[in-house]
Nucleic acid binder design. Structure first.
Lengths: 229, 229
DNA sequence: CCCTCTATTGACTGCTGTTCAATACGCCCT
DNA sequence: AGGGCGTATTGAACAGCAGTCAATAGAGGG
């Protein structure tokens, strides 16, 4: 944990030109620094537009060292996406609320606040990352699944909780996550563009309402199905 | 339009080894061929995993020629995405139906059929493409906007058509497009994985029902808002 | 003060996107 | 038929970047 770093400076003379002295960090600290830099860079530019050299230079290290910590550029990128997703999940975890509806609203509000605060990075990570590598797609999908699980857990004990495992309902919930992503992206983009924009409360109400209606719609189809067959 | 191609063959001798004779195509034809190849390759592999050399080899041309038709790899990729999006839009255009509801159902059915038929390519294009270049993101966004416009046009003349331009409703519709994409992706993935899967009719009903409810929900919030303020 | 352990370097490789001057194929004119 | 011309096409050369590896230096311990 010793975050104390000793640096031995040297004089720059005519014979031996000034070289940046090595800065030796502990493994975990270096790793954190690199992931932090990755979040910054990949949050602003597309994957292809971020070079390992640029990261290394920004970190003040050599390219080779980065490959000591991450086997490939994709693995490095995957690590940053994993971190970003973890932060998103953590920041929207409102714990076990007494009332699932209140809990849902709190979670959505935290989600929107997060998206608004990290608009560009959120957009870049969610949009740009997926195509680069199956591994990254898996991470994003698992993050979405986490949200779905959370939603289902919130509604366990509700009247028709038995139907919540039905394929249609799972599909509906997955779709709703897509709805939330698209709507929130549109929201922050509209804010950035300066066009007339609904308030965060309105958007939250929209997302919450949409979820109720989507699930209800799926359940309705389900019971209609059950009544027939 | 002359699609007749004359090929002059040569004998392969010991002194002058067999070389593939040049095949000279007209500009439009070559362009079509390349875009078709692009749809195939980018539909199966991620952007980075498709090399210009591979495309050139598959087309039986030199790498340089491809750069005669497209200035950069990204531009080439953008052209293929544009073509793919155009086909999707065209194949789901059911014309002006008498009843907007019937028209909606027909459009959704065509959409799902298309997605199921081009599952892999659809997934790759929609997921992978966006992050590569702002240009591609613009194309995808415009495609989504086209769907939204179509939906709105279908419901013009409906009772509360005056509210359809409200920011909340536009956001709701954009969100619904995200919903449709996520749900249909989940659907075809579930089919591919062999897990229990709703029928196409069920999914169509889910999408249609969700749209009605989402828009209704957004409008309800709107009128409530109007009543207050 | 030296020794060791390892975080760190930097030069090297190979692949891939991109450029460009040269080339050859097909068409048209005589 | 054949020669000239326009242009589709080539292929070699360039540049930049991901990834490799043997060598190095800096810090901590004996």
């Amino acid at each position: 944990m010793a975050s104390v770093v000793k640096i031995s400076r040297r004089k720059a003379t005519a014979r031996t030109p000034m070289r940046e002295p090595r800065v030796r960090l502990e493994v975990e600290e270096r790793r954190r620094q690199l992931i932090e830099l990755g979040l910054q860079h990949f949050g602003e530019r597309a994957y292809d537009d971020v070079s390992i050299d640029a990261i290394a230079e920004a970190a003040g290290i050599s390219k080779g060292l980065l490959y000591h910590y991450f086997p490939t550029k994709r693995a490095y990128y995957a690590a940053t996406v994993r971190e970003g997703a973890a932060r998103l999940v953590a920041s929207t975890d409102t714990g076990e609320g007494a009332d699932p509806l209140v809990s849902l609203d709190a979670g959505l509000d935290a989600y929107l606040t997060y998206v608004k605060a990290h608009a560009k990075a959120y957009a870049t990570l969610m949009r740009s990352g997926v195509g680069v590598d199956p591994e990254i797609a898996r991470i994003v999908d698992e993050t979405r699944a986490t949200f779905v699980e959370r939603l289902i857990a919130g509604f366990a004990g509700s009247q028709s909780s038995g139907f919540l495992d039905a394929p249609v309902v799972r599909l509906a919930l997955r779709g709703w996550v897509g709805f939330a992503e698209a709507a929130s992206l549109g929201w922050v983009e509209a804010i950035a563009a300066g066009t007339p924009t609904p308030s965060q409360d309105e958007v939250r109400a929209l997302l919450g309402g949409a979820m109720m209606e989507i699930v209800r719609s799926a359940l309705r189809g389900l019971t209609r199905e059950a009544a027939r067959g």
